[in-house]
Design a protein around this nucleic acid. Structure first.
Lengths: 196, 196
DNA sequence: GCCCAAACCGAACGATCGTGCTAGAAAGGA
DNA sequence: TCCTTTCTAGCACGATCGTTCGGTTTGGGC
């Protein structure tokens, strides 16, 4: 990896961390430069514009999310075990303020601001949502989930469980957040499991 | 109502509308002044600082939310009917970008930024969450909901349903968002209703 | 060790940020 | 109508915003 690419990655790491605290729109070339020990112009040279920087931060976070959540889940056995692995990794990543936070806050920030950032967020979510639905479908074909259950609805509901956890954990500092998320997830599974 | 108070309300209305689009932190004295046809200093004189403005916007939104969601629900008959009324009014307010949006985006923005704004958000959510739990408890004492169901868990789960709806409706422009939210809500109720 | 290209910095740009100060316009009670 | 209180505009301030540009350092291939 060339030197330029290395610093670019370092900047993106720092930017993603900052953005998950103060939001993607709250990112500033100045603060980002001083927090990485670079000059404004030196940092700016790596990205053509601020919007491009934000876009690259999002792509960077997406890769991390796939690596730490989606891929580990796909490595687990098909069916409920896989869905549960997805949930656990997702939860773990959200807990320590990883890239999951970024998507939550960015989605709320840009849900009413048309443009490339919003488009990217939509695309990423649809991709992920499809992955979740697909995992659920394998669970159906494995005979673990009811055939009449809606995979998209499941993905939607699971997302809701995670958003609620996020809110309780990060905003409210509620230490029962994880317990509640687990109960909600279990209830979700209980409703779609095939009756014995 | 004095003239000053009238313009203050008008500014807060405009500010709340703007903030629900671009976020509470994205509010700017300049843009707010030009969108209300006032001068920066003239507008600023009504609020001692920007943070105070944000705080008052939040309080303004809270009042609207209580008026349009909580109060109508409390006017409905106790039990499931009341909970369902809460859900429907909440949904309706979220649909047309009312004050509900503001709390969702503000919560995501300030979940990692300590200070009075965050404290206010926490307080408001705890208040509301308690109201929801209380509505659920009356449902229990009416014999409509299971006595072993956890009211706080229900409030938490309902919040998750709303957050997921919000995401699907506003970010993804998913026109099945409402249907999915209703299904999720029905599933939530089905799990806590007393068996016949 | 030389040289070119890549990487980085410093200074500056116009614009806009939040925030004061002061003077004048408007409102309202007497 | 006058006087006082309330409201609002104009102007200015330091700071910071995103961005540009010319120059300096640095690193890798010969």
């Amino acid at each position: 990896m060339s030197k330029g690419e290395a610093t670019r990655q370092a900047v993106l790491d720092q930017a993603a961390a900052t953005a998950s605290r103060i939001g993607l729109a709250g990112l500033t070339i100045g603060t980002l430069a001083s927090s990485t020990g670079m000059s404004k112009s030196g940092l700016f040279a790596h990205f053509q514009s601020k919007e491009s920087l934000q876009s690259q931060v999002l792509a960077h976070a997406r890769e991390k999310f796939v690596d730490q959540v989606v891929r580990p889940a796909l490595a687990a056995p098909r069916g409920e075990t896989r869905v549960r692995a997805l949930f656990e990794h997702w939860l773990a990543l959200s807990r320590d303020g990883g890239s999951a936070c970024l998507f939550v806050s960015a989605s709320a920030e840009y849900d009413d601001q048309p443009g490339p950032i919003r488009d990217q967020l939509v695309r990423d979510h649809l991709d992920f949502s499809d992955s979740v639905a697909q995992m659920f479908r394998t669970g159906i074909s494995e005979g673990q989930f009811r055939a009449d259950a809606d995979p998209d609805q499941f993905a939607h509901d699971l997302h809701g469980v995670m958003l609620a956890f996020f809110h309780a954990y990060r905003l409210l500092n509620d230490d029962t957040a994880e317990t509640m998320a687990r109960r909600a997830f279990d209830a979700l599974l209980a409703a779609v499991r095939v009756p014995e």
